[in-house]
Amino acid sequence: KLPPGWEKRMFANGTVYYFNHITNASQFERPSG
């Protein structure tokens, strides 16, 4: 399970990334916590 605010998303080319809808942060590494 991801930390609060984070969700797993995917680009059109299939690349997975993680987006935080609270802070609008995005990253390729899975957030810890």
Rank of each mutant, 00 (worst) to 15 (best):
F11L: 15
A25P: 01
R9S: 03
F28L: 13
F11A: 14
M10R: 10
Y17V: 07
Q27T: 10
F11H: 14
V16T: 09
K1I: 14
Y17I: 07
R30V: 12
G14K: 04
L2R: 01
I22M: 10
R30T: 08
F11I: 05
G14M: 04
T23I: 05
F19V: 07
T23F: 06
S26E: 10
P3L: 06
G5F: 09
K1R: 13
S26I: 15
E7R: 06
V16F: 12
P4W: 14
N13P: 02
K8S: 08
N13D: 15
A12F: 07
V16K: 04
P4I: 11
H21N: 13
V16R: 04
Y17F: 08
Y18R: 00
W6A: 00
F19P: 01
Y17G: 03
P3C: 07
Q27D: 02
F28K: 09
E7A: 06
G33L: 13
S32A: 12
F19N: 01
A12R: 10
N13M: 03
S26L: 15
S32L: 12
H21K: 13
S32M: 14
W6L: 01
F19H: 07
G33Q: 12
N24V: 04
N20W: 03
G5Y: 09
S32V: 13
G14L: 04
F19I: 06
K1V: 14
S32Q: 12
W6F: 01
G33T: 13
S26D: 03
V16W: 11
Y18E: 00
F19G: 01
G33F: 15
H21G: 07
P31H: 01
M10W: 12
A25V: 15
G5T: 03
R9P: 00
F28V: 11
E7H: 08
E29S: 07
K1L: 14
W6D: 00
N20A: 01
K1Y: 12
K8V: 15
P4E: 12
P3E: 06
Y17N: 01
K8T: 10
L2N: 02
A12H: 09
N24K: 13
P3H: 04
Y18Q: 00
K1T: 14
V16I: 14
N20M: 02
A25G: 07
F28G: 05
S26P: 02
G14N: 05
N24L: 13
F19D: 00
P4V: 10
Y18L: 00
Y17H: 03
W6I: 01
W6S: 00
K8G: 05
Q27S: 10
M10P: 02
P4G: 08
G14I: 03
L2F: 04
E7V: 11
R9D: 01
P3W: 05
F11N: 15
Y18M: 00
W6N: 00
S32P: 11
N13A: 04
I22H: 10
N24G: 15
G5A: 06
E7T: 09
A12L: 09
G5K: 02
R30W: 12
S32D: 12
N20Y: 04
Y17L: 05
F28R: 09
T15Y: 07
F28D: 06
L2V: 04
I22N: 10
P31N: 01
R30P: 13
G14V: 02
N24E: 09
P4N: 10
F11M: 15
P31S: 01
P4R: 10
I22K: 08
